Simulated scan of single mutants.
Amino acid sequence: MKTPIHITHVIVGLDVGGAERFLLRLIEAHRDDPQYAHRVISLTSKGTLGARLEEQGIPVTALGMKSLWDAPRTYARLKRALRTNRPDVLQCWMYYADLLGGLAGRRLGIRRILWGIRNSHFESGGTRLKRAVRRSCAIASRHLPWRIVCVADSALEVHARAGYDRTRMEVIHNGYDPDAFTYSDTGRRRLRRELGIPPDSLVIGSLGRYSAAKDHHSFVQAANAAMRQRRGLYFMLVGRDLTRDNPALASQIAATMHPERFLLLGQRGDVADCLSAMDVFCLHSRTEGFPNALGEAMSVGLPCITTDVGDARLLLGQGGRVVPAGDVPALAQAMIDMADLDAAQLHAMGARARRRIADHYTLDHAVDQYESLYQTAMALPY
C-alpha cells in the first residue's frame, strides 16, 4: 500500500469559527481515504471541535497558549511536537499559527509549509502587538512558506498590497456540501414551534459569534427600523455569546421596545435546523474573507442579505441583496424589501443561491484543490 501523505495542521484554536469549521470539513473529507493522514496542533486549547476530531481518530495536541506573551514557550512546545511527529506537509492557519508554525518548521528543515490567510482586512484592529505580528508575517512571507493559500480573491489582493509575497499566493475558496448541509422541514417546524414563532411571521436570521467584526450592533439597529415599518418580523441570532446573558446585546435589544422579537439561541449544534427555521439570512459583518455562514445559508436554500465585505458579493451572485458594510439604513431597507416579497419570490431567490453553491463552491472542488497542492508539495525535495 502506498504510504499516505502526513499533514500536520497548526491553528490558533479549535472553537467554532470559519477557519476551524473548514479545517474540520477538509479532514472529514479524507476520513476513508488512505492517501492522507492528518493531525492537528492547536496553539491554545482543544476547544469545541477538538473532541469531534479525536472521535474520528485524528490526533489533536493543545499547547495551552494563553496570550501572545506565551509565544516563546508555545514556540518551544510546537517545535518539540513537530520534531516528534515530523510531517510531510505543515499547514498553518491564520497569522499567529503562520508565524510560529513557519518559524518552527523552517528551524526543523521542513520546506513544505503552507500558510493560510482567512480575512480581507490586513490591519483590521487588534493591539499593537497583534499588528506587529501581521507585519512580521508580511516580511516573513518571502522566506518561511512554500505557498500561501488565501480563502478569497480580496484577501490575496489586500495582503499582497500590504507586502506579502504575491508569487507564493493562490486562492482556494471555502467549499460546501449541498447534500449534507441542506434544508430540513422537520427541523424548521420543530424549532419554530419550540420558539413560539407565529406561522405567518418572517424570520430574518444571522449566524456567527458575537464580535465587533460581525457588527451585531448594526443588525439590531436595522431590525428595529424594519420592525417599525413591517409587522410580523422576527430576528434569530445564532452563535457564541448571542444570549440574554450578554449585557451589551441584551441592553440594545431591550431598547428596541420589542425584545420578544429577538430570538437569541447562542452556540448550537443543529446549525442546519436553525437555518431551516429562518426565511431570510443576513450577514452583517464589517470584515470577512470568504464567509462560511453565508455559504451555509445558501446551501440550505435561503435568500440572503449580505454586507459587501471580502468575497461575499462574488459568493452570493443573484441569490439576494448586497449592502454597504455599516450602513444601517441600507440594511434596514434590504430587510423591508425581503419582507415585501411573496413566498414564491423568496423561494426562487433561495433556489438561485443554492444552485450557485452546487455549481461553483462545492466541498469536493475545494478538497480537490488542496489535494493537488499536497501532491505538488510532495514533488519537492524534503
Results as ranks from 00 to 15, higher is better:
Y183E: 14
D153Y: 13
D273R: 05
A138C: 11
R31T: 11
L302G: 01
C92M: 12
Q35D: 15
Y176L: 08
F122P: 00
V271R: 05
A104D: 02
A29I: 10
G232W: 09
T256I: 09
L283N: 01
A343E: 14
S67K: 10
E28W: 07
L100H: 10
A325V: 01
A104H: 02
H9F: 12
G320P: 02
G269M: 03
L156V: 04
V238A: 03
R192G: 12
R106N: 08
P87T: 01
G125D: 05
A140Y: 11
L275I: 00
P59R: 08
L99F: 12
D364W: 06
A348R: 10
A76M: 15
L202A: 03
P87C: 09
V220P: 08
D279M: 00
D364G: 13
G310V: 08
L100R: 01
A254D: 14
Q252T: 04
A366E: 00
L23V: 02
E28H: 09
P34R: 12
R86F: 11
E260S: 14
G187T: 12
L195F: 00
M227A: 11
A366W: 03
K66R: 13
N246D: 09
A348M: 06
L202G: 05
L249A: 02
G105T: 06
A325T: 06
R52F: 11
R313A: 15
V171C: 09
L331A: 08
T84F: 04
L242F: 04
R192N: 11
H121Q: 15
L156M: 13
D273I: 00
A19Y: 02
I5L: 11
N224S: 15
D337S: 10
S218Y: 06
D273F: 08
L14S: 06
H173C: 14
R77I: 10
E288C: 05
K214D: 00
L302W: 03
R193C: 11
G266Y: 01
A132R: 12
G196A: 01
I11P: 07
P381Q: 13
S124R: 07
M94Q: 12
M65H: 04
